[in-house]
């Protein structure tokens, strides 16, 4: 029989986007240490439903750390304790019996709350629509090595492509900036030969889309990098800063994109 935890939860409850929200207190009784964080919430919700209450709404889908749907800011840290994990990969063995756990939504004006702990991350889709693609037709799959790509470049592009678009970077940033997400998306395409052709146009339009959605500005504090479940490096932001500067100058004095 696994060890059981008795916990107190302080949970953000907000009936809808328009309504006022507030912190409510719940007891989470007899939580097995083997449960995942989301399973713990499932157990608490079953209790709330049995008492005739409204269950706590939270996002989730794959529950194996690949879809980026789960969110939650746990004790002030997006995706909770542990490096390189999503909330669905956090297990209750990370907590002690008797702990009080604060659970809040990812907070940013660009991510409005839909209900309780669920936020609307459509802003990210709009940023992708602004340039996070390659517009040339690529036809059917080509031979793997038809386009030679140096291994370090392929690796760096892949590390950036590991971004699951969860939004933890925005939630962690003191300024609710989306720079790590945008940098990962801009750079993973910009580094590869297929994506290079549209590199300048891409960085300009994606950064402008980011600004239009009211995300904050980067202050180089690297909170994003610290919480990223895919451990994407803030040096992609460095690269994007450089690419943005170069593309701005080109646009201003050489050509329109």
């Amino acid at each position: 029989m696994a060890k059981k935890l008795q916990l107190t939860l302080k949970v953000w409850r907000q009936p809808s986007g328009k309504a006022e929200g507030r912190i409510e207190t719940y007891d989470a009784k007899d939580i097995p240490v083997t449960a995942s964080f989301l399973e713990m919430l499932d157990i608490v919700n079953e209790g709330i439903i049995a008492d005739g209450g409204e269950p706590i709404a939270f996002d989730h889908d794959c529950r194996e750390g690949i879809c980026g749907m789960c969110s939650l800011t746990i004790n002030g840290c997006p995706h909770g304790p542990g490096k390189g994990v999503t909330t669905c990969q956090v297990h209750m063995r990370s907590f002690q019996d008797g702990d009080t756990i604060w659970i809040e939504p990812f907070r940013a004006d660009a991510f409005p709350v839909l209900k309780d702990l669920m936020v609307d991350r459509t802003a990210f889709d709009h940023i992708i629509q602004a340039g996070g693609f390659i517009s040339a037709r690529t036809g059917s799959a080509v031979d793997a090595n038809a386009t030679p790509i140096p291994k370090p470049v392929a690796d760096a592009a892949f590390d950036a492509a590991a971004c699951i678009g969860c939004g933890a970077c925005v939630a962690a940033c003191k300024n609710a900036s989306a720079m790590l997400f945008v940098a990962a998306k801009v750079e993973h395409l910009g580094m590869l030969p297929q994506g290079k052709a549209e590199k300048d146009r891409r960085v300009l339009s994606m950064v402008r889309a980011m600004d239009d959605h009211g995300f904050g500005n980067c202050t180089n504090q690297y909170e994003c990098e610290a919480v990223c479940p895919k451990e994407i490096s803030a040096t992609y932001i460095t690269k994007m800063n450089r690419d943005f500067a170069a593309a701005s100058v080109k646009e201003a004095v050489v050509t329109e994109f």
Partner: peptide, 14 residues
């Protein structure tokens, strides 16, 4: 960019 602040504030590395 963030009108509603965290009730539980924490800082990772800043």
């Amino acid at each position: 960019a963030r009108h509603s602040r965290y009730a539980y504030e924490s800082t990772q590395t800043a």
